[in-house]
């Protein structure tokens, strides 16, 4: 839905996109939204858990990243616009339960998603690419069942990084501010299961990982930067807290 914010009220509300992903399960819905530098909008739509196989079909919105214009129309340069029986809004497919989405200034798109038991992924998203779920995965089902014996396949993208066992990533930012010098130019991924923030930094062609804020011992739901550059963390649960990160000089 799009709307205008005036005097703390939303006006001119208009549904600009409705996912063709009807589901009766209340999970794996979709979580993130962001603008690309060209002004188009990216939306993530989860695989619906019971409908995971649909993530490999292009005739629905299960397990897809969607790209639309602000008015809901489809950009003419979307990758599947001219493909018969494919929904033209689809930007990439083969995703599971996307929880983090970052669009860089240069237009590169980074995303992370929950795997099943194991196999959480950190991906570089490119138009038209298939990210493999559930045909390839590094995880197994919650029940212990095999989802796929394959982890790699031609025509399917490999994650930049994956986590086994799962960390349950919940949100992500790319920090390029100056207030926290040690975190500069890093991806910061909050995690529910590992109860920390993963600081991911690209060094040469590899992505290093460091666990920070693990002393909080809390399931971390989200991370954000205020207009003044301060970092906030949101913890998960009935007594969830919004925490402001400050630097203490010793």
């Amino acid at each position: 839905m799009s709307a205008e914010l005036r005097n703390n009220s939303l006006i001119n509300k208009k549904v600009i996109f409705e996912a063709n992903a009807f589901r009766r399960v209340p999970i794996h819905l979709g979580a993130k939204i962001d603008f690309l530098p060209d002004g188009t909008l990216l939306l993530t739509s989860g695989d619906g858990f019971d409908y995971k196989e649909q993530a490999q079909s292009l005739n629905n919105h299960f397990g897809k990243i969607i790209r639309i214009n602000k008015d809901g129309s489809v950009p003419s340069d979307n990758p599947f616009v001219d493909i018969p029986n494919a929904l033209p809004e689809i930007f990439s497919y083969g995703h599971r339960n996307m929880q983090g989405l970052v669009v860089m200034e240069d237009g590169r798109i980074f995303e992370h998603e929950h795997g099943p038991r194991g196999g959480d992924e950190f991906n570089l998203i490119e138009p038209g690419k298939n990210y493999g779920w559930p045909a390839i995965t590094y995880g197994i089902d919650y029940s212990g069942a095999v989802i796929s014996p394959f982890t790699k396949m031609d025509g399917m993208e490999q994650p930049l990084k994956y986590w086994v066992p799962s960390i349950a990533p919940s949100d992500m930012i790319y920090y390029d501010g100056d207030l926290y010098p040690e975190l500069k130019n890093s991806f910061l991924v909050t995690a529910l299961k590992s109860r920390d923030v993963k600081k991911i930094k690209k060094i040469n062609s590899l992505f290093s990982e460091e666990s920070i804020f693990s002393n909080l011992k809390s399931r971390l739901r989200s991370i954000g930067i205020s207009p003044s550059g301060e970092m906030y963390l949101l913890t998960d649960g009935r007594k969830g807290k919004l925490l402001k990160v400050t630097i203490t000089k010793i």
Binding site: I140, G144, A145, V146, P149, F150
Partner: peptide
């Protein structure tokens, strides 16, 4: 996908045990 006898057996046996 290249599902072979061996990979099918892997799925069946793992499911029998873990699931």
């Amino acid at each position: 996908l290249p599902v072979s006898f061996f990979s099918s057996l892997e799925i069946i046996l793992f499911d029998f045990q873990r699931l």
